[in-house]
Design a protein around this nucleic acid. Sequence first.
DNA 1: TAGATTGTTAATCGATTAACAATC
DNA 2: TAGATTGTTAATCGATTAACAATC
Lengths: 223, 223
Amino acid sequence: MDDAKEKSTQQPVDVQVPAAVVSRLSLYLRELQELVRAGQETTNSTQLGKKLGFTDAQVRKDLAYFGQFGYPGIGYRCEELIPAIKRILGTDRSWPVAVVGLGNLGRALLGYRGFDEQGFRVVAAFDVDPDQLQQDVDSVETFHLDRLSEVVKEKAIRLGIIAVPAAAAQEVATKLVDAGVDGVLNFAPVTLALPDHVSRVGVDLAIELEQLSFAVVNRPENP
Amino acid sequence: MDDAKEKSTQQPVDVQVPAAVVSRLSLYLRELQELVRAGQETTNSTQLGKKLGFTDAQVRKDLAYFGQFGYPGIGYRCEELIPAIKRILGTDRSWPVAVVGLGNLGRALLGYRGFDEQGFRVVAAFDVDPDQLQQDVDSVETFHLDRLSEVVKEKAIRLGIIAVPAAAAQEVATKLVDAGVDGVLNFAPVTLALPDHVSRVGVDLAIELEQLSFAVVNRPENP
DNA sequence: TAGATTGTTAATCGATTAACAATC
DNA sequence: TAGATTGTTAATCGATTAACAATC
């Protein structure tokens, strides 16, 4: 407001940012990365909004929470906005991540290429079944759950992914938190009770399908 | 309003229900199912809200979109509310579902127990790689993508899950829609361009971790 | 009956959209 | 310069919360 030339505000934000804004930020990042792959150098709020189904005003407002990234008359330079959003999301670094649970889903996550591309490195996987711990999976080292705390500390892991059956999820979550993890991504279909200082994101695969089924059943015309 | 004794309003809703309400509905359902497993017969808006981090008023308001399910002075009877919510979500039936993509994630989805438990049956899986089509996977029949339309019709599939690489996702989505599918659950990290009448839910695993990383980095005290 | 808890209305809060001066 | 598009303020819209009469 004083120094209009100052671009981007770096690091954590003081005003409380709505979760909806943060999730759109990730979508903007994804689109920008695709635009770069398509060879586009600049974009603007109208184009970005159209691709994602948002208004241009919303795109500009969302970005304005974090600083000034655009150029009036031009739009946004992809190669500038991408690192800016990464910095905001905290993915301008590479986060070491632990996966707990070596069932089908856990194994799929160990092999998921998208994580590395976006700043996450699965560096350890845990299970309680010795049969699952015979060798590395997708070149990720595997450990017995008993060694969680030790390995989390050694590898400076701050994020944990829970891919165990529902019945085990709370116990695993508690162990992750006791081990010092700051955030958990939970794929088990249960609500975790955890201290407030731990960040949580939940993905319930069946719930995603339920949302789809509701949308299909409640479509304008067509019960 | 006239007939106060009339419980539940059955079938599709006339007023446009916010997406946030629908996703909370799924959470209520999940909690209710857990309460039943724990032997609890009734619950109330305060208990439900506390477990999920919502106010009691919100729980009541959400349910009130769809009818009257509770008993003043008592609360909600789990065994009554569960089927009521299922009817609203459209999961009072079993939906045949197709999974496209037999990579790690697709295979994990074929084996996912949670789907059946919530009213979804994966009845066909597709890929373009003949090596992946040698035999059934988790007792789900596999087909070449070329046979998508044929199989979708034959098995009356209305929901499709996209678990292919980003580069193939749009093409697969279009094929699903052409085959007559009404909704798609997309795990590929791309925004799909599809006709408006097709319902969409997107899950981007890297984005989920980004949301977590943002939360961790922007926690009150601790940059 | 007294106590508990609903469904619903009104009040508050927050998020989205529209509009436009600033500016590249 | 004229045209395009930003950042931001004000107006609108929608969702959440508080409060309470109705009622089990």
